[in-house]
Design a protein around this nucleic acid. Structure first.
Lengths: 332, 332
DNA sequence: CTGAAAGCGCTTACAG
DNA sequence: CTGAAAGCGCTTACAG
């Protein structure tokens, strides 16, 4: 390419990077040659020379009963924002995330890592901490030291759901959380939300019946029937369980109940999820796309500032209720 | 690393690749040094030296009303199989897929491309054809020349759905396809299935009422009610529309109909999708995971055999019905 | 404002 | 069976 423009390789390189002043004449000839030859720098050679790949890795943990739509939202938030900032994304879905991180880190394939679906005790974390590349977490682990973290503020979400019910006059609520095995697998957000909801209900003098529902149908439908049967006087239902949220319309139809006349309902799921299942329930948005984007922004900042020293960021997004009309005052 | 093992760089390299015979003594010392230092070859340097990156690109087209669970199935099929074969996957979600392909191809970041959700006339195809790397398509385009293609055999699926109904004694069917804008956007599979279903119904002397339903609720629910109202004597329902499939349980409940007693139903969606929505309908599996895996296998074969000459593969997977008990003989 | 040269970390003919 | 050397295609001090 340089020879086509009639300049040296170094001059061509500088003309492209703009890292030193180039005469207009030369700049034009280089630009012309680039266009002519459809020249694009070789990524491997550039990576070798600069120790930068302009690629980040996104490490997923794809569990069989995880809700796919939410996962895809995170993924697209990450890949789209990364591209806007000049990075491509390596998507890693290996079972053994720790080994994958080690492999990719030490082969210098990427400039940084985003970890999806981070568990309370996540096997990938110790590997990430000793990796040379920076990282950002989607999901708050038990020990969040030394890496940036992005997550929904689940305790605040629990309080918000309870408050919303309280203000409308509800005094007896049912909370349906994810099943226990989700918690055991590292889904600490489940009890973070539930614990704070309980606390808040206690503060307000409300009754809160807390349950774990199954993660799939038809079991979760049966669960919902049982919970509703057990507490006929409850007027509000809080859902931190996507499967339960998707199953509820049928359950209510079967019982001849309408929402919000017979029961006020508030969930915790993404807009995307609501749209797809067409759920008529107000909900705390899980903001997957937004979280993905922010994680990438923080990561890129660390990469480009070589800024491994500056203090750790823990960003817990304030929950927001998206109103879909499923909350009303309880019947007299 | 070589110096730690007390051998030359070339010997170390050969010891690792196994490309020439190495004395046991040297091999052991190299292995030891590798372990000691946690040595992993630099990916960029290796790519530069070998012109191979061991990375493939997966180019998605993520459309707002596409069903996310199916997309994720394809993605995981590709990433998992790629890893098994020694490749990592760059996930590309840019709007302008043609430009992205061009950029990634000419910078030599990857060894090959998998195109997801290929449209009838796909803007990425001409770029792929002139790229130096091989490609594989998920989805059959109008002109499938010069690239390997993997898709469900949608015409066969249409015929299979009609046949299944016919054998049970049904003579009047309703088919609900995806909305027209999906077709316009390149979803030729929609009419491929519908056309063949119509042909088959004609051959068998059956009546087939063919409709396009909306791609979201609540519209698609209303659509279903209209179609069922219009043809009270129809005894079988064919669904090539995920949203309609998800909406049907509610629609039937509202109408006081049961399946398969009042209506036999057969859909076309992935197992994953059925599980998530807990759909009680027998369906032609869309085999997203399987298709993703096969595309990667074909791609890797082309990459590793340098086999750009051998004839194009068009693999249309034979549809299979997964029985969920929603098909029965019609009521007298 | 520009060029010649070194170097990034590998692989692989070429010699021995 | 092993080593010294060239080369992959860039970037960036170093000279001028």
């Amino acid at each position: 390419m340089a020879s086509a423009a009639g300049v040296s390789r170094s001059t061509a390189s500088y003309a492209l990077s703009g890292k030193r002043t180039i005469s207009p004449d030369v700049r034009a000839r280089v630009a012309e040659a680039v266009r002519e030859l459809g020249y694009t720098p070789n990524a491997g050679a550039r990576a070798l020379a600069t120790s930068r790949t302009s690629v980040i890795a996104l490490l997923g943990r794809f569990l069989p009963d995880e809700f796919a739509p939410a996962m895809l939202q995170y993924i697209l938030g990450v890949t789209n924002r990364a591209r806007e900032l000049g990075y491509d994304t390596l998507l890693v879905s290996e079972e053994d995330g720790g080994a994958a991180l080690q492999r990719i880190s030490s082969s210098r394939m990427v400039d940084g890592f985003v970890l999806l679906n981070v568990a309370e005790k996540d096997e990938r974390l110790p590997v990430l901490r000793s990796a040379r590349q920076p990282g950002a977490l989607l999901g708050l682990p038990g020990d969040p030291s030394s890496v940036d973290v992005f997550d929904l503020d689940f305790p605040a979400a629990g309080a918000l759901m309870v408050d919303a019910m309280y203000q409308l006059g509800h005094r007896e609520l049912i909370l349906v959380s994810q099943p226990l095995h989700v918690i055991e697998r590292g889904g600490a957000y489940v009890w973070r939300l539930a614990d704070r909801a309980r606390e808040r209900a206690d503060e307000l003098g409300m009754t809160l019946h807390s349950y774990n529902g199954a993660s799939g149908q038809p079991e979760v439908g049966d669960d919902l029937h049982r919970f509703l049967d057990a507490h006929p006087s409850a007027t509000g239902l809080l859902l931190n369980n996507e499967a339960a949220s998707a199953a509820l319309p049928n359950v209510l139809a079967t019982r001849g109940m309408t929402c919000p006349e017979d029961l006020s309902v508030i969930g915790r799921f993404s807009d995307e999820f609501a749209r797809m299942f067409s759920l008529p329930y107000s909900a705390v948005d899980s903001a997957a796309d937004e979280l993905g984007r922010r994680a990438v922004e923080a990561l890129v900042r660390r990469i480009e500032d070589g800024d491994s020293a500056s203090p750790i960021h823990i960003e817990l997004i304030t929950p927001v209720i998206h109103d879909r009309g499923s909350l009303a005052a309880p019947r007299k």
